[in-house]
């Protein structure tokens, strides 16, 4: 038991080290640019005053180390600084958008995960039959399609032609919950299609691997019912890989929302990030990148910890 706790603590420690290094990268990447960032951002329209102003805003006129400590201190207390473009506080800009993005990702996850795990299981159990092959072909195709393509096809079919759902997912903080669900149906279906393809393939691979084990063969040869073989013998060992798949795909969702938010004009963090990159609003880009990257790392961390905790075999590795 002690070694299990030690492994988990070690993994969590590693996660924190990764977070620290990533915050370093996000902050110091600015210094990779060979010229002067302030002049670069302003381009042709620069004057010595505006350059000095931007340099001050970005903290380029102070030592990088001090500036990093200020920045990370601010981030930890929820103060991300100010946007270059609008001068507004970044925490204020990201606040409601963060909630929106998590709402969208969460809504998509509650629909896509159970559905795709069930399909992945079906494909694995009826391996080689028609149902498996059609699920496989559909998943492969879905992986190859760009998200914006799927999104626009859905808009064309369900919104423009059929008139069932709105094509724009415009919500504001006052939108009631039911209305929110209704307006985000298309983004959620798009995300579901993108994520489901991955989850189905990974679940299928995990189960197929597992069913090839000798103890499953043994259980079958003993004459157990297929349902008992799956529930009592296969499932306990399949839990760890499936949970891994689930959490990794939540991480994928967090990133996949960027494109979907832009297509549907959904006021989330991804849209903010894309706008900020286009305007080269560096403080906003840094803040949003840090939020996305941290979420991704924390979800990965959770996946690893759960995998360690749920897999007794990991305890007896020598």
């Amino acid at each position: 038991m002690r070694s299990l706790a030690a492994m988990i603590l070690k993994r969590i420690g590693l996660g924190f080290v990764t977070l620290a290094i990533v915050s370093f990268i996000v902050f110091f990447a600015v210094y990779l640019l060979p010229g002067d960032l302030a002049e670069e951002i302003l381009g042709q329209a620069r004057t010595p005053e505006t350059v000095a102003n931007i340099r001050h805003e970005l903290g380029l006129d102070r030592p990088a180390g001090t500036r990093y400590i200020e920045w990370i201190g601010g981030v930890l207390t929820g103060d991300f600084g100010r946007s270059l473009a609008s001068g507004r506080s970044i925490a204020e800009l990201t606040g409601s958008r963060l909630v929106n993005t998590f709402f969208l990702a969460g809504f998509a996850a509650t629909i896509s995960l159970p559905l795709s795990i069930a399909l992945g299981l079906a494909a694995a159990l009826y391996r080689g039959r028609l149902i498996d092959r059609s699920i496989n072909v559909a998943a492969l195709t879905a992986i190859s399609l760009p998200e914006f393509f799927v999104a626009y096809i859905l808009i064309l079919a369900l919104s423009v032609k059929a008139g069932l759902v709105p094509s724009l997912a415009s919500v504001n903080p006052d939108t009631p919950l039911a209305e929110r669900f209704y307006r985000t149906i298309l983004p959620v279906v798009t995300l579901t299609l993108a994520v489901a393809a991955h989850v189905i393939r990974l679940t299928r691979a995990a189960i197929v691997n597992l069913m090839a084990n000798q103890y499953i063969e043994m259980a079958r040869l003993k004459g157990l019912k297929p349902s008992r073989v799956i529930v009592r013998h296969a499932l306990p060992n399949a839990l760890a890989p499936i949970i891994n798949v689930v959490v990794l795909n939540l991480a994928y969702l967090i990133v996949g929302v960027v494109v979907v938010e832009v297509v549907f004009g959904y006021p989330g963090l991804g849209q903010l990030l894309v706008d900020a990159v286009a305007k080269r609003d560096i403080p906003v880009v840094q803040a949003t990148c840090l939020i996305f990257a941290s979420t991704y790392i924390v979800l990965n961390l959770i996946a690893d910890v759960l995998t360690i905790a749920l897999d007794p075999r990991l305890l007896h590795q020598r």
Partner: peptide, 16 residues
């Protein structure tokens, strides 16, 4: 450890 889309967006903002 950083999703590549996020990393690419960060670098594109800096390098243009």
């Amino acid at each position: 450890a950083i999703p590549s889309l996020i990393f690419a967006l960060l670098l594109l903002a800096i390098f243009g």
